[in-house]
Design a protein around this nucleic acid. Structure first.
Lengths: 201, 201
DNA sequence: CCGGTGACCATATCGTAATCTGGTCACCTT
DNA sequence: AAGGTGACCAGATTACGATATGGTCACCGG
């Protein structure tokens, strides 16, 4: 199956890509709500109706933008986890960089942060994937930690992951993080410490 | 200093009490926002201005109602903690009954629940006291658990309490609890278990 | 002085008519 | 058929005057 046209070396960007690019620019400048489909259409020089040949809805475009934000964040987190030596350190790295990424986006790209937060609160597919991936990563770390004998093994794996995720919610959920920004400095280490102690044998 | 008039056995309720009573009735029927000071005034048969001789603001009345809700809840929680045998059980009792109280109020007195939630989100004195009291209770339990050798003692007490509180936020904060009602059944035991494991030696 | 109030003000809230926006569809052009 | 569009619609949103509300104050009667 041919994946892309791939006719020329630096081919003209596909219409779809143009839409995403325009959406990124507009969303990050004016926000999701205040950007209209007409704005996007004008930006790419086609009619509004044409956009619907590539995206089912405005939300679908929003999800694409979210994925665009979230994918590199996930990669950074995965890299940090990779770089950490012990399972303990990996758990710490997972949550510390996860929160740091969120915070950074909050201060540099407030508009996009709001979209991501909204996406999370509405449980869009883009956010659902991100959450699922983070949880899978967490689970794999705990599995490894158990295999190496660093973590306790009595509690059901699912329950442990569930508990950790909920405990981290105030920092890991963008909507909640907004209200807890001041608590990150002191509170985050406290919760991570709590989690690490709960995992220890 | 004389605390109450205390002239007759079942004396006429003080104006202040009448106001609180009327507020309780109106708030729980129509909600905080839709109850006007004029409504309250009419209910007690005095003028609106007169209410301000007893309360500085509508919010002050709201706080009185919150305290009225929260005080018995706190008593119930304290009793449950008292009844529990071990520090482990006391921690479990603290959070289980705390959440149960919230849930019950949510289903039986939705309007009042909303006021309490609002009070919490705005950090009114009524809620601040409740939170402070719960935290003090938690701290005393952990102190006892440490003294008895049931809980680990390395981690600073403050940090432990802080971490536990934040981890429980999704269930202990009325605003968040609303969005997590479905997660209580599975999630709450998971988080409490997590906390208990983190406390163990 | 104590118990109590009507009239008043700035702001919040509401009702609603006008406008805007997401989304659809028949249809056009090449 | 493939690429593309204007015109249209129901419901969301806005603008804004009218109304309602929290709060204050000078003042009244005994």
């Amino acid at each position: 199956m041919i994946q892309t046209p791939a006719l020329t070396e630096d081919q003209a960007p596909s219409i779809r890509d143009q839409i995403v690019e325009a959406a990124d620019a507009h969303f990050s400048r004016y926000g999701y709500a205040k950007t209209t489909m007409a704005d996007l259409a004008r930006a790419i020089g086609f009619s509004k109706a044409y956009i619907y040949k590539f995206f089912d809805s405005k939300q679908a475009i929003g999800e694409a933008i979210c994925t665009r934000c979230l994918t590199p964040q996930l990669a950074t987190i995965a890299a940090a986890v990779e770089a950490a030596a012990t399972p303990h350190e990996k758990v710490r790295a997972l949550f510390r960089t996860s929160v740091k990424q969120c915070q950074e986006q909050f201060f540099t790209d407030r508009q996009l942060y709001d979209i991501v937060a909204f996406s999370r609160s509405e449980n869009w597919a883009s956010s659902a994937r991100y959450v699922a991936d983070l949880n899978a990563l967490l689970e794999s770390i705990i599995r490894m930690g158990r295999a190496q004998g660093d973590f306790e093994r009595k509690t059901p794996l699912d329950e442990v992951c569930r508990g950790i995720w909920i405990a981290m919610l105030p920092f890991v959920d963008p909507v909640l993080l907004q209200h807890n920004l001041d608590d990150v400095e002191d509170g985050l280490p406290a919760v991570i410490g709590l989690i690490l102690r709960s995992l220890s044998t």
